[in-house]
């Protein structure tokens, strides 16, 4: 069955991120000059304007900063079978925030500050999405 949900259109800035996801690694940009870690990917460091950066692997661990539970599917034909689902802003230990889904837990059990860890789900041969699940206690 073909994948029917929105897919990233990889661009020159984001290619290393998505290629690493496909290999099961969550990578972040770190400024080669001042060491500032940033996400989403950009060409210039917002702290020191350097155009030089390196990709460093995230521990893939963080906490739920905020979250929503989608109950009404939009577009309906895409998400009718997916609701309810959780979208969260996750604050990674490296200090950046990322949007993703929280899986492996009932939506009503998600709490603020809940520790989570990355889990990779293949969408297509090209794209693997970094999702998050509760950190085992």
């Amino acid at each position: 069955m073909s994948y029917g949900k929105p897919l990233p259109v990889v661009d020159p800035e984001t290619r290393p991120f998505w290629e690493a996801c496909r290999e099961g690694r969550l990578m972040l940009q770190r400024c080669a000059r001042c060491g500032h870690t940033r996400f989403p990917p950009t060409s210039f460091c917002p702290k020191c304007r350097s155009g030089e950066h390196e990709w460093v692997e995230s521990r893939g661990r963080g906490r739920v900063f905020s979250w929503i539970v989608v109950r009404h599917p939009v577009p309906r034909e895409v998400y009718a079978m997916e609701v309810p689902y959780v979208v969260a802003l996750i604050e990674l230990d490296e200090g950046v925030r990322m949007a993703s889904n929280i899986v492996g837990i009932a939506p009503e059990s998600v709490t603020a500050g809940m520790p989570v860890r990355v889990v990779f789900r293949r969408a297509t041969p090209e794209i693997t999405l970094p999702l998050f699940e509760p950190e085992p206690s």
Binding site: G4, K5, P6, L7, P8, V9, V10, D11, T14, P40, I68, V70, V74, P75, V78, Y79, E82, Y85, V87, M98, A99, S100, N101, A123, I127, L129, L131
Partner: peptide
Amino acid sequence: GRELAAHGITQFTAPFGW
């Protein structure tokens, strides 16, 4: 909704149903 091809910054939001 938006189109299924998530360009630019939406590649970090739309694929998660946001």
